[in-house]
Nucleic acid binder design. Sequence first.
DNA 1: ACAAAAGTGTTTTCCATACACCCATGC
DNA 2: GCATGGGTGTATGGAAAACACTTTTGT
Lengths: 229, 229
Amino acid sequence: MSFTYKYPRPAVAVDMVIFGYDTKKLRVLLIRRGIEPFFDCWALPGGFVNPDESLDDAARRELAEETGLDQIFMEQLYSFGSVDRDPRERVISVCYYALIDLLGTTPKGASDAAEARWFNIDDLPTLAFDHNEILNFSLERIRGKLSYQPVGFELLPRLFTLSQLQRLYEVILGHALDKRNFRKKLMKMDLLLATDEYETNVSHRAAQFYCFDRPKYQKLVKEGFAFDL
Amino acid sequence: MSFTYKYPRPAVAVDMVIFGYDTKKLRVLLIRRGIEPFFDCWALPGGFVNPDESLDDAARRELAEETGLDQIFMEQLYSFGSVDRDPRERVISVCYYALIDLLGTTPKGASDAAEARWFNIDDLPTLAFDHNEILNFSLERIRGKLSYQPVGFELLPRLFTLSQLQRLYEVILGHALDKRNFRKKLMKMDLLLATDEYETNVSHRAAQFYCFDRPKYQKLVKEGFAFDL
DNA sequence: ACAAAAGTGTTTTCCATACACCCATGC
DNA sequence: GCATGGGTGTATGGAAAACACTTTTGT
């Protein structure tokens, strides 16, 4: 079976920058390529867009194939379209990034035979194609975003302590934050709901669990509320 | 001549949201479609990506075709890829927006026979395809961007008065700004160069002309400077 | 002289930052 | 009782916002 067109067409792929967080480090999921070009190189997971799925659907499908996870925060990043980014032929890549909590959930490895691994964000190999560029771009984006939107909640279990949240911000931003000021700011945002649950079995004062006020957040987003961290 | 592939491929287009500003209103350049579907409807200018040009190149080419202008501020916005956004066949549209000063320059109409017109931003017709959605999206983006980057300079002549700059901000943001505070903030950014030229033939005190310190701006962008308006 | 826009400073309020100690718990 | 991280308040500096009058020019 084959498909014929009057004009040449680029292939269209989605590539995924999948961030994972595990209380210590920010990680990215990479796969080892099993075919040329860049055989054996690490690369961002991705694939071609099917005719019957939207770009978002394609991205969500890739994400599910690689991680087994659904219902994950995901956002379109940018489309890369240099003529020679793929040596074989013209490929336009629409890139997405996703954020995954590596604690509360257990993402499976890639479904296809290809080897998949979580890499520490500041210890990355040279990647296939222009994937290093894409990765840097998405890292800048997530850091920028974190500063004015409470993106981080996607990377934590439903219930979390303020210290967990602060560590998350510190890991993503790459620098320490003042505990008291961090709490003040977050409380002022008024998007955290204190629960009556506390940590157990810790050898220090038990921290209170909070959860994220999703309805309120979505209302604010709709109204164009400007966050500010 | 025809082109055959093993798998079906979407067509890839670039669509342009071209903003223009003329001291009173923010406008968008639309073209009237001469073919089905949406015959006679207004639509965003755009076209298919050629095999030998990058996405940015394609966007720049479209921009030049529609306006005759080169060297214009332009930025990728988002890629739209719903399955049914074009009733004929699958088309993925990579969208860009551009900003044009309608005073200092005189953009020609569209080069092809199609009718082209500048529409007031708050008096828009129903557009072809998902183009209303795309336009709203880009309007939000430009407003957001204005708040933390001095984007507005792209929409003014090389020499401009502070009042002109303020009017521009007010028109795009859609609300009034305090004159003294506006000047203080802009001066503190240190990106304006006062010239020794003044308005002439105005029936009030002549305003001083300023120009934008482009080298300094580009330096700051490279260093990741955060603006804040 | 008056209309019309340019230009200019001060005060107040609020937010960001810096900073140090007591509290609860497990061992 | 000690080690560990949880939790809290205050003082200071700087930016943002509010606000009104004088200057210049053409008619």
